[in-house]
Amino acid sequence: MKVHAPSAKALTPALLARWPFPNHGVDADKEARGHVLVIGGSVETPGAVALAAIAALRAGAGKLTVAVPASVAQGLALTIPESRVIGLPQSTGGSFLAQGADKLAPLAGGVDAVVLGPGMLDAPASLAFVRKLLSHFPHSTVVLDAFAMGVVEQGALDPRVIMTPHAGEMAKLSSTTKEAVCDDPLTSAVAAATLWNACVVLKGACTFIAQADGTTWRHEGATPGLATSGSGDTLAGLIGGLAARGLTPPVAAAWGVVIHSRAGEVLARRYGPLGFLAGELSAEFPKLIHAAHHRQRRP
């Protein structure tokens, strides 16, 4: 099916000013700033979960729970002392088992945003886990990243779901080529958002955000250093943290893309265009979010 994709609106300062950050007030406790659940990881890639989880806290979320395969839970708990860490059942290959989703179901009523997929292995068992988990969290914003996005092969999702593919992932999920996605990324993003009934963030030098209703935005960044291992995990966590604070899925996605890009610009000025680490991005988020919020409050 050919999808007509109109021009995407640029995420300009004037447009972003219409989407203020929540003003929690000086008396707000951690409950008021939202609870994020980050799920993913494997024996080989536990760091991806750490990057996403730290980014969620740096976005200003008040509470953090992390769920990982049982074999890496203790290491993550020591790496992120601010979090509650839950070890889930795993297969002999280290992937999630579907029944592990039931262990997280009791959290559903108190979790505002779920970040699902960073560091997750590509296995049928993991996708069964993802589908079951989505059914347990019907009222949470869910950010799908990495192999968790493969769940779209089993049917449409929900507008509360945010997907964060790069061009290669989009090509695989859409059964096309990376070249085709890169030739017309806006059309690819709109087609995916329409088909999957989700908010799609197609990452690249120019990132496109598309909603199922055809609304689109774009953000152009010239920071090649952001194309590095762990950068996408950090973005997913940032978006999840903003969603937990109360931003709607498309607004959380838009601000996440912008703040992530601005953090890359800060590090590029400090270190040079290449060579800064994804783990260094999150430390820049609080200052950038505060500055953006301050500009919005000016008369």
Rank of each mutant, 00 (worst) to 15 (best):
M1G: 12
K2A: 09
H4K: 10
A5E: 13
A5N: 12
A5V: 11
P6R: 07
A8I: 03
A8Q: 01
A10W: 09
T12V: 10
L16N: 08
R18H: 14
P20N: 11
G25S: 05
G25M: 03
G25F: 04
D29L: 05
A32Y: 06
R33F: 08
R33T: 11
I39L: 05
I39Y: 00
E44K: 13
E44F: 09
L51H: 07
A52R: 05
A53P: 03
A59V: 11
L64Q: 02
A67R: 00
P69W: 00
Q74H: 13
L78Y: 09
T79P: 01
P81C: 04
S83H: 00
R84P: 01
P89G: 09
Q90F: 03
S91L: 14
G93F: 08
S95T: 08
L97G: 04
L97E: 15
A98F: 02
Q99R: 15
Q99D: 15
G100P: 01
D112H: 12
A113K: 02
G119H: 00
M120L: 14
M120I: 01
L121F: 06
P124L: 14
S126R: 03
L127Q: 13
L127E: 07
L133A: 04
L133G: 01
S135T: 14
P138T: 05
H139E: 13
V142Y: 03
L144T: 02
G150W: 04
G150R: 15
G150T: 04
A156L: 07
V161D: 02
V161H: 01
V161P: 00
I162Y: 01
H166I: 10
H166K: 11
A167H: 12
E169Y: 05
A171N: 06
L173E: 03
T177V: 08
K178W: 03
E179Q: 14
P185F: 02
L186V: 04
L186A: 05
A189W: 05
V190M: 08
A192V: 05
T194D: 12
V200H: 01
V201H: 01
F208N: 08
F208T: 11
T216W: 07
H219Y: 15
H219D: 14
A222V: 10
P224M: 09
G225C: 08
G225V: 04
G232Y: 09
G240T: 06
A243W: 00
P249M: 10
P250N: 06
V251A: 13
A254W: 01
G256K: 00
V257M: 07
V257I: 15
V258N: 10
H260T: 09
S261C: 08
A263T: 07
G264E: 06
E265C: 04
V266E: 15
A268Y: 03
A268D: 06
R269Q: 15
Y271S: 07
G272A: 10
F276R: 01
L277A: 12
S282V: 07
A283V: 13
E284Q: 15
H290Q: 15
R297N: 10
R297M: 10
R298M: 12
R298C: 05
P299H: 15
